[in-house]
Amino acid sequence: MIVASKKPIEEVIDYIKDCNKVLIAGCNECVTVCEAGGKKEVGILASALRMYFMNKGKDVTIDEVTLERQCDREYLEEIKHMAPNYDAIVSLACGVGVQFMAEMYKDKPIFPGVNTSFMGANLERGMWGERCAGCGQCILAKTGAVCPVARCAKRLFNGPCGGSTKGKCEINPNVDCAWQLIIDRLKALGRLDDYDELMPVKDWSKDRAGGPRTVVREDLRI
C-alpha cells in the first residue's frame, strides 16, 4: 500500500486560514490502513480545526466526507454536488488522490492533509516500512526478493557497502542493511552463487528519471 503520515495541523491551518467553508475528504484505501487519512483521521482533524477556529473567534464551517477511493473518478464524482459549497477541500488521500481530486474539481483549491511517503507494508502496530520504489523494472528475482533500490540507502546493485555493521545500515542502527538481508535470503535458498554475478548498470528510464510514466494496455482500451 501507499504509506502516508498526517501533516502537522499548523500546515493545514495555514492553507485554509482565509476560508469560511472547508471540506475534509478522507480515503478508504491505503491511508485508512496506515491510519493517516481515513474516516477516523478525518474526524480528528475536523474537530481539531473547528476547535482552533472557534478559539480564534472565527466562524469556519468544517465538514467531513470519506470516499471509497480518491484515485478513481467514479468515487470522486460522489461529492460533485457538495464541492461547489466549499472554499477549499483538504484531501487526506495520498498525493495521487489530491491530484486526481484537483483534476476533477478544476476551480477548487485542493490542499494535501498528509505527507505521502512510500509503498510499503505494516511491520508491527504503528510501524510501516518501505518495500518498493516503483523503479519500473523489477529485479527481485535476482536479489532474493529483497529490493536494494527501495531498501539500500545507496541503492547499490552490488552491495553491501563498507558501512554494513551487524546487519544494520550505516545511516541508522534501526535500519536493516538490505544487502545483509539479500545475502541471508540467498543463503537460505541455497543460491549464494547468485551473489557472484555482477548486476548490470540499471535502465532508469523506466523509473521517475524517464519522466512521468503512463501504463497503456491496448488490450483493455475501449
Binding site: 540507502a153 545507496k154 541503492r155 547499490l156 546493485f157 552490488n158 552491495g159 557497502c161 563498507g162 558501512g163 550505516e170 545511516i171 555482477l198 548486476m199 548490470p200 548498470v201 540499471k202 532508469w204
Partner: peptide, 23 residues
C-alpha cells in the same frame, strides 16, 4: 560508493547513485 550524505554538511541533499562503485 561514497559515504551517505546524512553524515555530511548537507544531510537534506538528494543522492544520485545512478550506478554503483562496481559499475
Amino acid at each position: 560508493s561514497g559515504d551517505h550524505q546524512s553524515f555530511g554538511d548537507n544531510p537534506t541533499a538528494q543522492n544520485v547513485f545512478d550506478i554503483d562503485s562496481m559499475q
